[in-house]
Design a protein around this nucleic acid. Structure first.
Lengths: 214, 214
DNA sequence: ATTATCTATAGATCTATAGATAATGC
DNA sequence: ATTATCTATAGATCTATAGATAATGC
């Protein structure tokens, strides 16, 4: 009998029951994410992952084929979470002229809440095999894409000065990275700013950045 | 007889001749940096480092006490290089009103040249033991400090609108990170921009960011 | 004699799997 | 009978060191 891919991922498994696969993999991801954040990918052993997930090392390997599979599952989970966070944030914005301010605020708050996850992506993406690393980067792009759309909408409605697509995308990347900056420079920033202060000041900067482009 | 620290670092060595220590450690750093960039810290073995440096595994351990020592030496080397690059860039600026534009340009070019190194710092700093990680972060801060001084100078001379110290430092961090962004989003940016284009557009954005703060 | 280097390997992992056992459903 | 899980371990590392050897300087 052939190996049967789970519905949600492309990782082969020996286990037939797809619901069980999903459930167990959720356990694996939850346990592994915590361990990777605390110790890093390489210092975490497959045994630790299995134990933290609540089953044996043998069972772990029924649901993944390698340790790297686990890392990929974790990265995918993180992006899903971040994307969900961003989508939720977009819905919460009330619309109108202040949309950009609200979007920045909500996006930065997502970065704040998911600080550890985002940091993990920055640090461990390289440990993934090529194809999967590419997919992680595409996910990154998808999240930036949400920001691009918001900006494009504001340009269309005349609330932002028009600019060409490339510049618009770069602004989106800048916003995205300034959000991440809160995670990877927190050791410095948190000494001077609360997240609210940080958002306020950076929002001013970002607005200035765009306003000037006439 | 006691272990004797080398002149340049705090890492103990069994070897008495300080010049030799410096020379061998330079070999180690050069070899290890290449390997870490290509394979990552954890996938590189001490044997590979020794071989690439041109001596045996036994000798390697005369100059360092652990694999992590090697990583620290590499990180320190990278910061020295980047700091040197930035310092050189500062000297090359001609002064006057356009200083900021030039400084941004030179700094971004340093990031461009040292792309691989900077990426390595982002990815492997966490693998360092606590004390050294802290030192790496201090070095990071020192480099940002150079930008702070340039900005402060421009504010003092009236070429930039005055702003409080905290904002000024945040601008410096933003510039610093937007430089790094070229290294860790290169997979995307290089599809749309040459480094010169990137510098041009980001410079406009940064100027806008500051100009607006009156 | 002292310093630097090398070879050989101890000791400690860690990933992944084979084969045995338990649980489930016909 | 089939599916899921567990235990035990093969096999493959890898770091760090001990002890032997070579080179240098008195």
């Amino acid at each position: 009998m052939h190996e049967q891919p789970s519905r949600t991922h492309d990782i082969p498994t020996q286990v037939k029951n797809p619901d069980l696969v999903d459930r167990r993999r959720r356990q694996i991801v939850e346990a592994a994410a915590k361990l990777f954040i605390a110790q890093g990918f390489h210092k975490t052993t497959t045994r630790q992952i299995a134990r933290a997930a609540g089953f044996s090392i043998g069972s772990l390997y029924e649901y993944v084929t390698s340790k790297e599979d686990v890392l990929y599952l974790v990265c995918e989970f993180i992006h899903t979470e971040v994307a969900r966070g961003v989508a939720g944030a977009m819905q919460r914005t009330t619309g109108g002229k202040e949309v950009l301010v609200e979007v920045i605020r909500e996006y930065f708050l997502v970065c704040h809440r998911m600080s550890d996850f985002i940091l993990l992506i920055y640090q461990e993406t390289r440990s993934l095999p090529g194809v999967w690393r590419k997919r992680v980067l595409e996910n990154e792009l998808r999240i930036t894409g949400v920001l691009v759309e918001v900006l494009a909408g504001l340009v269309a409605s005349g609330d932002l000065p028009s600019m060409n697509n490339e510049k618009l995308e770069l602004v989106a990347h800048n916003i995205s990275v300034l959000g991440h900056m809160w995670t990877f420079r927190r050791w410095y920033l948190a000494r001077h700013y609360s997240i609210d202060d940080y958002i306020r000041v950076q929002t001013d900067f970002i607005i200035g950045m765009i306003a000037r482009q006439v």
